[in-house]
């Protein structure tokens, strides 16, 4: 009898503890979600009105003027979006192809110097590189042109891509290559039947990440583009300098949304591969 009472009391305590644990986790989740999401509501609120005198929390006039201005020629945001999109596509294709080829050489030679050269652009500040690079591009008549911006962005994006692809070249891949060759296949067959099918998931990740790098770049576009290549990041900083906060909030949303969507897509698709672009792989083991 006594033992039954003790057991039932223990069960009650345990279930209360479990309920408390569940409640704690729920409260934690709500607080953390609010901490992450609330700052972004500021952008939405500011983009849906005009006038924001102190101490009002919301814009005085709630309207769609910033959105309307977006489509006007003078704001330059829409044309900036189009230029940035075209740059992103070109840079991502160029960097993915060259990154795949360079990572193959990197894996074969296992040279320390080559690894150093691949990792260096990863950590260098684009604006410092752009400062040194500008004079070279002036001599080549590429400063202030889309080609110059694409070339300089492609250097950094290729380094990302080469690091991303370096683990693709495993012993298994090497054995499959040897098998295809022993069956009479040429280089094209090796790429068609072994390399591309094996690295397809990483190619998608690489395309998205390098496109994002170009989409979000400000250093190269401002230094190399010299104001003649107008992307949305350039417009955003110009709007912040002009203190047109509503238009800047809208530009921020338009700049951030594709980036957030792309990273979320990659994360939900495969958290490991999407994560590898920024993390040295040995640390994930």
């Amino acid at each position: 009898m006594v033992s039954e009472i003790v057991r039932s009391e223990r069960l009650t305590v345990r279930s209360k503890g479990r309920d408390f644990g569940r409640l704690r986790i729920r409260v934690e989740s709500v607080c953390l979600s609010a901490c992450i999401l609330l700052p972004y509501t500021v952008l939405w609120i500011l983009s849906l009105g005009t006038g924001w005198d102190y101490p009002s929390l919301l814009p005085q006039q709630r309207n769609l003027v910033p959105w309307h201005n977006l489509f006007s020629q003078s704001s330059g945001v829409l044309s900036g979006l189009l230029t940035a999109a075209w740059l992103s596509v070109t840079v991502s294709l160029l960097a993915t192809i060259s990154g795949l080829l360079i990572s193959r050489i990197l894996r074969r030679t296992r040279s320390w110097l080559l690894s150093f050269l691949v990792f260096l652009p990863w950590v260098l500040s684009p604006v410092v590189v752009a400062g040194c690079f500008y004079d070279l591009l002036v001599r080549c008549n590429l400063a202030g042109s889309v080609t110059g911006v694409i070339y300089s962005q492609a250097i950094f994006a290729t380094a990302f891509a080469a690091v991303l692809f370096r683990d693709t070249w495993t012993d298994c891949m090497h054995r499959r290559e040897a098998l295809v060759r022993s069956l009479g296949g040429g280089t094209m067959d090796v790429w068609r039947h072994v390399v591309l099918p094996q690295s397809r998931p990483l190619i998608l990740v690489c395309l998205v990440q390098t496109a994002l790098f170009s989409w979000l770049d400000y250093g190269f576009v401002s230094m190399i583009g010299g104001g003649r290549v107008q992307t949305v990041t350039l417009r955003l900083f110009a709007l912040i300098r002009e203190a047109s906060i509503h238009q800047a909030a809208l530009a921020s949303l338009l700049l951030a949304l594709p980036s957030i969507m792309a990273v979320l897509f990659l994360f939900l698709k495969d958290s490991v591969t999407s994560f590898r672009w920024s993390v040295p792989s040995e640390n994930l083991r």
Binding site: I36, L37, Y40, L43, L212, L216, Y218, T233, L236, F237, I240, S252, L255, A256, S259, I260, A262, V263, L264, F267
Partner: peptide
């Protein structure tokens, strides 16, 4: 967590 991670520095 991907939201602040992928937010551009300027934003």
């Amino acid at each position: 967590l991907c939201i602040p991670l992928s937010t551009p520095a300027g934003v």
